[in-house]
Design a protein around this nucleic acid. Structure first.
Length: 378
RNA sequence: GGACGGGUGGCCGAGCGGUUAAUGGCAGCAGACUGUAAAUCUGCCGCCCCUUGCGGGCUACGGAGGUUCGAAUCCUCCCCCGUCCA
């Protein structure tokens, strides 16, 4: 029996998109779902109350590598686990550190055994293995653990991509075995889930092969990684299309690290149940607001006297109470309230898109919804 | 009244004979951002010219003269500002 019950409540016959419920130890999560990123155990600028009550977030992403370095997973374990540490009532998915293989490439060395990181904080050397990332994530107490994978840069040769993919598959088998051993040792009936990650760079044959081999593990859920590393968007979608049909229908599917607002529907239409991305939070802080009318670079001089809310059709706290002129002013002044208000808006925008997608799937109107979305301004 | 130290592009502040339209920083303007080394990063930032590639012209370092092939940089006088002594 899978540690993570995934209930599919509706399916779009035209596209194969699904609406479901992820039953976690920290409550049900309606899918398709967008997970805000809280790398260090916090979504920058927001309180858990904002997330849970204002935004309706039920599942957050945090990062194993970063929390392992600081404050340390043992500290978090002693303080009752990450949920309690950060006072988050919902569920948590932790990324394994695989993405840091990509983003911190100048600080690490990949070997067959795992990844050696030279801490970007103080230079200390740390080894992350398929097994140790499981143990760290168990210590954090996350609801969904991710396998250690190697996220290759773009572009890479087919041969390099194959070798990297092979390693990711080997690591997945090791990590999964370790995870299952640890579950057997546990007394608690509540078992977290563990997802392996499909790699293969931008080669459909490698993606398919990787998928077939990971499916043999019969894991609680599956992720597609290594996308949005600089490749054209059409290619990312092709890789998703190559992978999805081979994944078991009854397991949640997570496309990691995507995407732009206008892309969310594309992933969902291809069978994606879960996504995460730093764009709504990071771009918010950097002055880019996503709206129903496209991107708004709030720092632009044209908004100095603009009394309109960022998005006239948005019902978020920010749009109900504040003008573009005020937000621009806060941004220019470097006020931290700016980040809070902007992040609140962007995440509301993303959460609303996901709710609309789910509604469309439930009602059987996803094809119409897709047509409408595809004709909208970016 | 005297002795020092200063006056540099919107601001602060380097430069102290040529390669300096003038280092930096701030402010301003524009852009980027996709499992967060990111409240970060990149570009522009005197004016005018075919936006033609390291292009051309003009005006600039308190003011006015001077020395020099050449000055923000040296000299003279003047005007301001600061500190100290009267």
């Amino acid at each position: 029996m899978s540690p993570l019950r995934f209930e599919i409540v509706a399916e779009c016959s035209a596209t194969g998109a699904r609406a479901g419920i992820l039953h976690t130890a920290h409550g049900p999560v309606e899918t398709p779902v967008f997970m805000p990123v809280g790398t260090y155990g916090a979504v920058k600028g927001l309180t858990p109350r904002h997330l849970a009550e204002e935004l309706g977030v039920r599942l957050l992403l945090a990062n194993t590598y970063h929390l392992y370095l600081r404050p340390g997973h043992e500290v978090i374990r002693r303080l009752g686990g990450l949920h309690r540490f950060m006072s988050w009532p919902g569920a948590i998915l932790t990324d394994s550190g695989g993405y840091q293989v990509f983003s911190l490439d100048s600080f690490r060395e990949v070997t067959d055994e795992g990844v050696l990181f030279r801490s970007h904080l103080n230079g200390d050397v740390h080894r992350l293995t398929p097994e140790s990332t499981v143990d760290i994530q168990l210590a954090l107490g996350s609801d969904i653990l991710m396998a250690l994978d190697e996220c290759p840069p773009y572009p890479v040769s087919h041969e390099a991509a194959r070798q990297s993919m092979e390693r990711t598959v080997r690591w997945a088998a090791q990590g999964y075995a370790h995870y299952r051993r640890r579950l057997e040792e546990r007394e608690s009936p509540e078992a977290p889930a563990w997802f392996p990650i499909v790699q293969g760079s931008m080669y459909a044959d490698l993606r398919r092969e990787c998928t077939r081999r990971l499916v043999e593990l019969d894991a609680p859920g599956y992720a597609i990684g290594g996308l949005s590393v600089g490749e054209p968007r059409s290619v990312s979608l092709e890789m998703v299309e190559a992978t999805m049909p081979l994944l078991p229908r009854d397991r949640p599917r997570y496309v990691m690290g995507v995407g732009l607002p206008e892309e969310l529907a594309e992933y969902v239409a291809r069978g994606t149940d879960m996504m995460d991305c730093v764009l709504p939070t990071r771009n918010a802080r950097n002055g880019c607001l996503f709206t129903s009318q496209g991107r708004l670079l709030i720092k632009q001089a044209r908004f100095r006297d603009d009394p309109a809310p960022p998005d006239p059709v948005c019902g978020c706290y920010t749009c109900r109470h504040f003008s573009r002129a005020y937000l621009r002013h806060l941004f220019q002044a470097g006020e931290m309230l700016y980040s809070t208000l902007a992040t609140l808006h962007n995440l509301t925008f993303y959460m609303e898109i996901m709710r609309a997608l789910r509604r469309a799937i439930m009602r059987g109107t996803l094809p119409e919804y897709l047509r409408a979305v595809r004709s909208m301004p970016a």
